[in-house]
Design a protein around this nucleic acid. Structure first.
Lengths: 342, 342
DNA sequence: GTGCGCCATGTAAGCGCTTACAATTATAGC
DNA sequence: GCTATAATTGTAAGCGCTTACATGGCGCAC
């Protein structure tokens, strides 16, 4: 109990309990076929010595480190924080840890980060989206590491996917605006070349616009950020025939757009409808409150944890899971002013 | 390289390069006294074989896992996401990984999480605040693990601290309101028994109120959350003599309060001043924009990474770092209506 | 020319666990 | 009562690296 100069090892526990090291290990790992008597002896010895197993040694011998890797573009966007949070909590219930890495939407950087995670021996990996460098998939398959893609449904067979249909949700959002009478829509999106979620949303917006026969939308491509959203909004409003509705790639961009529109004295939503995507907690509390899409970030985390643990522990590859994202109609969308938007 | 059924080991590299395993290890770890010729031979062999070192084995043999642990109350509050994000990025530059755990403001849970991090062999730990169970400090010291407390300055000698003065910032915020003429202030805070940041803020508010000789503030203690902030605001406004200004423990509570006040038709900020704490990105974009305190979350992450890596690599304990938190005066605070607030 | 010291490299002993396999004992079938 | 089978437990060989220590060369002062 007093500070030992050298901590107790499994071998010490075995000696103290008068059993073999293998038995101690078995008790500690809840192996089958262990008598209650043995179990008790070992548990007593463990608490008497204050023994704590060494994770590194266990990892080396068992080839499992008890941690999975999560690769997210960034934690600056709270939506990924929400997902990471629920993932970590759920993993903890499975007695598993979370190794986190970010890559700022840079797939080269992602590959690099993935390499170090794999090198560290993570038992599984969760990726956001399904668009990654071929080398990343190659590495994962070569190592036969259980991994999931998430956030965006797709039909690749590379890996099980836990996500929702960004494109369809985006389509619904745009349709809603069109139903309200908007014809001149504009889109503010993040670069979507290497971002399947952004691309799916963009395409969903375009789908609805094309089906309705509206004129091709003006498009602003900017990085995610409030200031970027504001700037994009400013540019769109200064065009010869400005839009009556703005479809933003996420809530952050929409916040910026909303701010900029108000700064210019526009009467929202009468003079400009704005939509976001993600439904961050404060979206409902903007004024006007933001029409957006509620994405199942927490659910993705929980289900990803469960699916991955099943795969790791029982060696059975989980199936895809399609979650729902529902649109939230709020105060930032309304019919356009008569006479405008044509 | 085609898929090898069995990956190359350090031993294979040694054989391929015609040198000893020790030499390979030395080259890989940049040990001194290695000739260029040896280095080149090894590097060639490594790339020829596509060798990737095994993190677990390295960890066991060297007693360093190349990862530090971060314990945050939750990632649902984006302010911690911001900190985790910058910490992870900076650690990456030091070639170090981040093991993340959350504990929902439950110190027992935190100790539990800390135990598993230590067990995993993290090379260092970053804690939020300095209030933790004695067993947590005990564990850290017993293992002689480099660790930092953060977010809130203090003068304990337990560990180096990287933080700012929540109390002083809170005091400034309250003083600002008092200077504007408010006399009846109220406080909405999270439970602060085991949360030194919340407590410091609360005390800062009380300090200023007491010094100014204002009547004792009504206090609502609620969990962090928008809905909770709204409820607290509602209760305070229904009191016999409602406050003219509301000091909230963080921005999330303030968002809720702001919303509730508007829902009740109050003309903000004339009829009620509201302040937050954290300066989340959207604080500036509420309407009215939120007066709050900008906290150096990113800076804490960066400096924590640097300090911890110095400690780990050079065995020299870093000194405390006091960062600044500055108040942001915005649209949610104004002088009280004449005749009210007495 | 010899001896000392330093540099570069090799040898091999772990690091602290897990687990295949062996050994032992208990259970059961006939 | 004897063998086949299953339930327990023990033995010991790794897991793939790092590093203390040993070794062999080489340059240099004397």
């Amino acid at each position: 109990m007093n500070d030992r100069p050298t901590r107790a090892l499994l071998e010490d526990v075995a000696r103290e309990a008068g059993v073999s090291t293998a038995s101690v290990s078995r008790v500690l790992n809840g192996a089958p076929h262990v008598s209650d008597r043995l179990k008790k002896k070992v548990e007593d010895a463990v608490s008497r010595l204050g023994y704590v197993p060494d994770g590194s040694a266990r990892a080396l011998a068992s080839r499992r480190i008890g941690a999975i890797g999560l690769l997210v573009p960034t934690l600056d966007n709270p939506i990924f924080g929400t997902m990471a949070n629920s993932l970590e909590r759920r993993l903890k219930e499975h007695d598993c840890r979370l190794l986190l890495a970010t890559y700022r939407y840079d797939l080269e950087d992602e590959l690099q980060a993935l390499r170090t995670l794999v090198q560290h021996g993570v038992d599984g990996v969760v990726l956001i989206g399904h668009e990654h460098l071929a080398d990343a998939y190659h590495l994962l398959h070569q190592r036969q590491l259980p991994f999931l893609t998430s956030w965006q449904t797709h039909d690749q067979a590379e890996a099980p996917c836990i996500g929702f249909d960004n494109r369809d949700a985006a389509r619904q959002l745009a349709s809603h605006l069109i139903d309200l009478g908007h014809r001149r829509l504009a889109i503010v999106t993040a670069p979507y070349e290497h971002n399947d979620r952004a691309r799916a949303r963009f395409e969903g917006y375009c789908d609805a616009i094309a089906v309705a026969g509206c004129p091709a939308p003006d498009v602003e491509v900017v990085e995610y950020g409030v200031a970027e959203g504001a700037d994009a909004c400013a540019r769109l409003l200064e065009m010869p025939s400005p839009p009556t509705a703005l479809l933003c790639g996420n809530d952050t961009l929409a916040f910026g757009a909303l701010l900029e529109a108000q700064r210019r004295g526009l009467d929202l939503p009468r003079e400009l409808s704005i939509t976001g995507f993600d439904d961050l907690p404060q979206a409902a509390y903007m004024s006007p409150s933001l029409t957006t899409v509620s994405v199942p970030a927490s659910a993705i985390g929980v289900h990803a944890a469960d699916a991955l643990m099943t795969w790791i522990r029982h060696r059975e590859r989980p199936s895809d899971l399609h979650l729902d994202a529902s649109i939230r109609l709020r105060g930032s969308t309304a019919p356009p002013l008569a006479g405008r938007g044509q």
